[in-house]
């Protein structure tokens, strides 16, 4: 199989990288959550397309999980949390947006430079997908580093996980164990996060992590 099938797969995986960039420059909470929902939907499409061309029906499950869970339920829940906490106005970032974007471009270039020669033997579909997936992972990490707000760090973490799911589906015939586990671990992770957000709320009336930095055990 070649030609248009590969192109569509690459288009979808490339769009995921693009949406990752969109996540990087959002400075409004609700906009950030909406873009994250878009991120999950693009991931669902990319995974669904992989399921189609690899003829691997179990990947549809992964696509479905990505769409329903990460595209609808989690952004919805985060919307409510943000509303209840009253932190919807703006997202504080460390460093300027422009600098962050430049850094992000550097990371994408890095992942392409690393992945393409290494995976020369792997089938070409896995190859570009992996480069894109690594870009999404690195951009997710960049987002976690540059955001101070707990909710946007969580969004960064989930976009990072999306990159991992893309990588796992790009690897032909990788057992279902991993896909289910990724979905499952996100569920647990989200539970944990939910508990944390509310605990933080109880104690500080803010989810700005800078408020937490004051309470380091060593600085007295």
């Amino acid at each position: 199989m070649s030609g248009i099938w590969f192109d569509i797969a690459h288009l979808l995986a490339g769009s995921l990288v693009l949406v990752s960039f969109m996540l990087l420059y959002q400075d409004r909470m609700f906009a950030l959550l909406n873009v994250f929902a878009l991120h999950a939907v693009v991931l669902a499409l990319a995974v669904g397309w992989q399921a189609w061309i690899q003829d691997a029906p179990h990947l549809y499950v992964t696509a479905f999980i990505a769409f329903v869970f990460k595209g609808v339920i989690i952004p919805g829940a985060l919307h409510r949390i943000v509303q209840r906490l009253g932190i919807h106005r703006s997202v504080e970032t460390v460093g300027g947006i422009g600098l962050t974007m430049l850094f992000g471009i550097g990371l994408v270039a890095l992942s392409i430079v690393i992945m393409l020669p290494v995976t020369a033997v792997a089938s070409s579909i896995g190859r570009e997908d992996l480069a894109f997936a690594l870009s999404v992972v690195l951009l997710g990490m960049l987002m976690m580093v540059t955001r101070r707000n707990a909710v946007s760090q969580v969004v960064g973490f989930m976009s990072l996980e999306n990159g991992l799911v893309l990588a796992a589906t790009g690897a032909r015939g990788m057992p279902l164990v991993v896909e289910i586990s990724v979905g499952f671990s996100i569920l647990i992770a989200f539970l944990v996060i939910g508990i944390f957000l509310f605990r933080i709320r109880e104690r500080f009336d803010t989810v700005d992590l800078q408020a937490l930095d004051m309470s380091r055990g060593e600085q007295q």
Binding site: L130, A133, M141, M144, F157
Partner: peptide, 16 residues
Amino acid sequence: SVGIALALFGTILVYL
């Protein structure tokens, strides 16, 4: 979780 995410990427590469 960042550590564990990197480990998963490594695991996928080993599978590949």
